[in-house]
Design a protein around this nucleic acid. Sequence first.
DNA 1: GTTTGCCTTCGAGCGCGCTCGAAGCCCTAG
DNA 2: CTAGGGCTTCGAGCGCGCTCGAAGGCAAAC
Lengths: 187, 187
Amino acid sequence: MATDDLMTRVLGTLGDDGPPPVEAIHRLTDLAGVPESMTIAEVADVLDVSPHTLRYYERAGLVEVARDGNGHRVYDADAVRRLVFVTRMRLSGMPMRDLRHYVALVDAGEHTVPERLGLLVEHRDTIRRRIRELTLSLTATEYKIATYGGATGPDVQGPNGAAGPDVHAPNGAAGPDVQALNGAAGP
Amino acid sequence: MATDDLMTRVLGTLGDDGPPPVEAIHRLTDLAGVPESMTIAEVADVLDVSPHTLRYYERAGLVEVARDGNGHRVYDADAVRRLVFVTRMRLSGMPMRDLRHYVALVDAGEHTVPERLGLLVEHRDTIRRRIRELTLSLTATEYKIATYGGATGPDVQGPNGAAGPDVHAPNGAAGPDVQALNGAAGP
DNA sequence: GTTTGCCTTCGAGCGCGCTCGAAGCCCTAG
DNA sequence: CTAGGGCTTCGAGCGCGCTCGAAGGCAAAC
């Protein structure tokens, strides 16, 4: 188990088009059953990142990890939770820089809560904007797919290879084809 | 005008939460009113990328652009349309590699339409998956924001600076706080 | 004429986020 | 005893997508 990441696991439990259920969040990171302490390999497996990446995150100051007698890393529950948070935020596109800032605030104490909230709100807005962008791109792509080879109109140009001027249109046939993504007026 | 990109412009016309209207796609790239040919500066302005980036795309083989008597680039309508397509695909996360592949197919002639369709479908699925990931991250982030400073429970730890063990929790107060993103059970 | 300004080519450099390799330590299995 | 495997640190390297600087051309403005 745990060869796929948390995100994939939860997404798998969701209908591909269902609404975003808050319950999924709980299911998302059910750390119950996670041992008291874990090795780097175990954590890497659970989070679906490489041990290299975990060391990198530690070097970057995102988490502190204790060592055992042999100098090996020992991840306690707090460290694992922190790393779950970190990997989730990375997955949602938060830059390392911001993440460093955030965890620095966390380590600085409770009086930084307002600033942390500000960062979260900012990040939320970033995600929202990104989703809207992607939704639009998705619609455009779906439209392009749908009209590809739809009404196969007049063939404007034969196979032209490398000869002609800059050819942008995949074909002269599927009229609204590239139009949908490339501009020009209606279908 | 045109200091903001196409995406931003269309997003601006959309309600922040509205459904993805197909009509937006048409509005999205209304190239009517675009001159017969454009300079690199004009294209850069319209697409909200730098001239540097446009030259880079050309070097990368994504578009061919003619030169005038002075050796300056002259973008015709086809080139501009191609670049609109390219920038949109880039914005939706398609890697340069795939884009190169796609336009190579376009230039190779109409018999590559099926393969192009395959690429588009693949890209569509990638966008969909990404949207689902982001939606989940959004829900998690919103949950975290909502519960921040909710029930301000017992203060677990004072300001600890750099001293203590690895602290992951922003505070002991907002119980479900980090839990929402970090794991553990219910609120 | 000279200055301003935008264009050209070319190759180098950068920021990000990993990713890897080398050299070495420790433990366990055979 | 030896071999194997996984861990450690450190610093270097990489893939991506730009981004920039240098050196120079040409044209219009002053």
